[in-house]
């Protein structure tokens, strides 16, 4: 087991009270696994991703633990996490286009970053150049400023920098959202190749775009309103999802080869609940066509089949 997260809770502090953006997440990721993390906006997927590497000022660690390769990550301790960042856990941020200091040459910035972490830039540089070749950039990008690169080039450069120290876990946060479709595919393929080359051991790919996960991810974890809904291998999620939310989410995607002129794509009526005062029991209850009495109790996230976890009373049976 590469990564094990148990009952992780991270809330946002607001004047109105705590927003329970991540309310008890328990899951694990195996070595070599690329896990897709999907859900609609505000479901807590980015909060989960961020909480594994850096909580920003408004986030508050409430409880739970994170274990990476047998080491407990001090996710609540910003200073304590520094040792693990970059070397063990790394991130390709949502804002990859603006992640590099605009007034420093990319090579200089990389060198300063590495040296500040006690690494020798000179020793790492050959590998850095090799990886720049691998993602299809010119070697002279190191002598350029970020503004001289296109969006896609910046994205690839950040991917190379983030994975330079061969982290055990890489978090890719909405990295395809700002790209056009053809570049999305290239980025997705690069992620997979990073895993295949052994640059990263396992990966969490956060996105609201399930189709990108279909090309990339081994498993998919679906979140809804701060809770985990379902986790299963990609194929199972696409073809044999059990949680009603996952089913409706997948069925709202267009399929290749199907004409939608006559048939309207189905969406999910309603909107997610406020996480300031979330409803008791299953949080999908109000929008769920299958909801019944038992749903006022909170469904546990449990194993329902081999490699398949879900949190739904209809799936596990009300006596579970």
């Amino acid at each position: 087991m590469s990564l094990q997260v148990s009952d992780l809770k991270v809330y946002y502090r607001t004047l109105a009270g705590d927003v329970k953006a991540l309310d008890g997440a328990t899951f694990s990721i195996a070595d070599k696994e690329i896990m897709g993390l999907a859900g609609e906006s505000g479901c807590g997927k980015s909060t989960l991703g961020n909480s594994l590497i850096r909580l920003d000022g408004r986030m508050r660690y409430v409880g739970g633990s994170v274990n990476l390769d047998g080491n407990e990550l001090p996710v609540w301790d910003n200073q304590g996490m520094n040792e693990f960042r970059f070397r063990d856990v790394s991130v390709i941020p949502q804002y990859a286009m603006s992640a590099m200091n605009p007034t420093r040459k990319i090579g200089t910035m990389t060198a300063e970053l590495l040296e500040s972490r006690g690494e020798k830039y000179r020793e790492i540089k050959p590998e850095l150049l090799r990886r720049i070749d691998l993602v299809g950039l010119d070697r002279d990008v190191l002598g350029r400023y970020p503004i001289e690169l296109s969006g896609g080039m910046k994205q690839r450069m950040v991917m190379v920098i983030s994975t330079l120290l061969d982290p055990s876990l890489l978090i890719a946060d909405e990295i395809t959202s700002a790209l056009d479709v053809s570049t999305q595919r290239a980025v997705a393929e690069t992620l997979v190749s990073f895993r295949d080359h052994g640059f990263v051991k396992s990966m969490i790919v956060i996105t609201h775009d399930v189709s990108i996960l279909y090309q990339t991810a081994d498993t998919i974890l679906i979140m809804y309103a701060g809770k985990l809904a379902e986790k299963a291998p990609t194929k199972t999620i696409i073809e044999g999802a059990m949680h009603p939310y996952t089913k409706m989410l997948i069925s709202s995607l267009p399929e290749v080869g199907v004409r939608y002129a006559n048939k309207k794509l189905s969406g999910i009526p309603g909107s997610p609940p406020s996480l300031l005062r979330p409803p008791v029991g299953c949080r999908f209850r109000a929008r769920c066509p299958l909801a019944f009495d038992k749903c006022v109790e909170e469904p546990p996230f449990v194993k329902v089949a081999r490699d398949h976890m879900a949190a739904c009373w209809k799936v596990t049976g009300s006596d579970a």
């Binding site: 590497i53 520094n82 693990f84 960042r85 970059f86 991130v91 941020p93 804002y95 970053l113 500040s116």
Partner: peptide, 15 residues
């Protein structure tokens, strides 16, 4: 963003 990225990669406050 560039500050947050550096912090996410564990760069010391000095940098």
């Amino acid at each position: 963003d560039y500050s947050r990225y550096l912090e996410a990669l564990g760069a010391p406050q000095r940098l």
